[in-house]
Design a binder for these strands. Structure first.
Length: 287
DNA sequence: AAAATACACAACCGCATTATA
DNA sequence: TTATAATGCGGTTGTGTATTT
């Protein structure tokens, strides 16, 4: 048993709207509004169309102050950022862009942005691994990486961010509870170095807070004998970088990784999903 | 020049949610 | 409270146009 149709398909016109039909619908709606009922509207407006079709035509095309095509770079960035945070919730994304409909945003994504998104994802992945070694002062990170027998980089002391969601308070005192490290081999010849954005005025705590409140996403956590730090990525630009803090500083300033920071991140948040997604990429790269 | 393919965007379908009787 | 209708939403398909073969 299928679902009952919303109207008699044999009695309504389907396919592209003609200018005449557009005029009838537009004139009717401008004069009378929807009357709170789309289903009965076609009959009242004298249109041989399904009510749902009328609604869609109005919302996606005829409604005043709708923008079509020509997405700006700024709009693209908003869509890319929101997609990475909430996925394909087109109506929510469209609500953040003035004059854009969910259908338009969805079409734009499927035809243009999806490729951009996938390409950026791949580059980010390589970038994270590579600039790690190029931007962290190795003296701060004793024993944090080495070369394996093939001469490739071995990140066996790099801690990814599979934080235990039950642990809501990571600190220098319980850092041993950080999850076991995963082994990563970066094939140096495959990696591409992108521009790196370092902000030396921020410590790890501030970086993490920035991650939690903006479109920055922390990806990899690391620990050494005298400091901890993280890799992070700007989701809109795809630029990744890293930051670290000394335990001494943390003890002195009383700093803990608490809720909303990476350690105790809410497992229901999109932020947490980003972390899992990136960790999955790392895993796939290892295989 | 014609056919094939790719692309962009409009429109439809059916499920989920919300409103109403 | 419940059954039904209406609406909202996102995945998918259809259609016209541009580009490539």
């Amino acid at each position: 048993m299928g679902r009952a149709p919303c109207c008699d398909k044999t009695k309504v016109k389907r396919g592209p709207w003609s200018p005449e039909e557009d005029n009838i619908l537009k004139n009717y709606l401008e004069k009378n509004g929807t009357g709170g009922n789309w289903i009965s509207l076609p009959q009242k407006a004298d249109l041989r169309r399904c009510g749902k079709s009328c609604r869609l035509r109005w919302l996606n095309y005829l409604r005043p102050d709708i923008k079509h095509g020509g997405f700006t770079e700024e709009e693209d960035n908003i869509i890319l950022t929101l997609y990475r945070q909430i996925g394909s919730r087109w109506s929510v994304i469209a609500a953040n862009l003035s004059g854009r409909t969910d259908n338009d945003v969805k079409n734009h994504w499927n035809t243009k942005l999806k490729k951009k998104h996938l390409a950026a994802q791949n580059n980010n992945f390589l970038d994270i691994g590579y600039n790690f070694t190029n931007n962290i002062n190795s003296s701060d990170l004793n024993h944090n990486y080495s070369r394996n027998c093939h001469g490739k980089l071995d990140y066996s002391n790099t801690f990814t961010s599979h934080m235990d969601p039950n642990v809501t308070n990571y600190s220098s005192k319980n850092c041993d509870q950080f999850p076991l490290p995963t082994l990563m081999e970066i094939h140096e010849n495959d990696a591409t170095i992108q521009s790196v954005q370092e902000d030396s005025s921020l410590d790890s705590c501030q970086i993490l807070q920035k991650c939690a409140t903006t479109n920055m996403c922390a990806s990899t956590f690391l620990k050494s004998t005298n400091n901890i730090g993280c890799n992070y990525m700007d989701l809109s630009s795809g630029i990744s970088s890293s930051s670290s803090s000394y335990y001494d500083d943390i003890l002195e300033n009383g700093f803990d990784f608490q809720e909303n920071d990476i350690g105790g991140v809410d497992p229901n948040s999109s932020y947490y999903n980003n972390i899992l997604e990136i960790d999955q990429l790392f895993k796939e790269f290892e295989n």
